[in-house]
């Protein structure tokens, strides 16, 4: 455990010692802020118009926060490859991987450490959006429980993305290649439900089950469903497992 934490801390320090950590967090904050501002503007206008058409008051959770979070997941497509592309690739290029692999730590500890390091950066980045939520709490009265599940969902989605990124980073010593592959695969997973319309009903349900974002819906609605929890956790486990296999096969090939 202490090995995992040592590596996770080293990773996190690496992000903030280079511009990457700041670029990633800054990029995320700007785009999220933009989505939030647009969403809020729309919401305020709708709220003012609703009584005129005989509608009740709008729900902040369902009609603002949920959409903002859903939209913001698209930022992950761009940001996650930036976070993960260096994890393995850079260590392989600079030779520091030799230090890790000749130290008394297991591959599992290295991979988990790197994953947790990346996840911490992701968490820090997401934590910036608490400011936006705080604004809502000051001027309105949203429910906090659905916000909490939304954050959990966003964290799990991010974890799954990072697992994909980590895997591709372990395949190459070139950061750019790792980043491009991660981006392409995440994009494909993003739109995989488009395939659904091409096959029969069974095929459609299989494909929609695979969709990474599909499983986020319930979290954002405030529903904590173990099916989705299991989906994300097994996705992450599978990604890290593939990474472990890639590292091991690299070891054999030399």
């Amino acid at each position: 455990m202490s090995n995992i934490l040592a590596i996770a801390r080293k990773e996190l320090r690496g992000y903030f010692a280079s511009p990457i950590g700041y670029v990633v967090a800054g990029l995320y904050a700007i785009v999220f802020g933009y989505f939030f501002a647009i969403g809020l503007n729309w919401f305020v206008r709708q709220s003012m118009q609703a009584p005129q058409f005989g509608g009740g008051p709008l729900n902040v959770n369902q009609q603002l926060i949920r959409y903002v979070f859903m939209n913001s997941t698209v930022i992950n497509l761009f940001v996650v490859p930036l976070i993960t592309m260096r994890t393995y690739a850079e260590e392989k290029r600079s030779g520091t991987i030799e230090l890790l692999m000749t130290s008394p730590v297991t591959d599992f500890q290295i991979i988990t450490g790197k994953f947790l390091g990346a996840l911490s950066l992701y968490l820090a980045m997401t934590a910036l959006t608490i400011i936006h939520m705080a604004v809502l709490f000051i001027y309105g009265s949203p429910e906090w429980k659905p916000i909490l599940t939304a954050y959990l969902g966003v964290l799990l989605l991010g974890g799954s993305f990072l697992a994909v990124g980590l895997f591709f980073s372990s395949l190459t010593r070139n950061q750019i290649v790792a980043g491009m592959f991660t981006f392409a695969v995440l994009l494909l997973l993003w739109v995989i439900d488009w395939l659904g319309s091409l096959g029969g009903p069974t095929f459609e349900s299989v494909v929609s089950y695979l969709s990474l974002t599909g499983h986020l819906e319930d979290f954002l609605r405030g529903v904590l469903d173990t099916r989705h929890l299991v989906y994300y956790l097994s996705f992450i486990t599978f990604g890290l497992f593939l990474t472990a296999k890639a590292v091991d096969s690299e070891r054999w090939r030399g």
């Binding site: 080293k10 280079s18 600079s94 030779g95 520091t96 991987i97 000749t102």
Partner: peptide
């Protein structure tokens, strides 16, 4: 075992 590889495995940012 202590190992010094051909290129010292240093992290430039530390």
């Amino acid at each position: 075992t202590g190992y010094l590889p051909e290129t010292p495995p240093l992290y430039p940012e530390m």
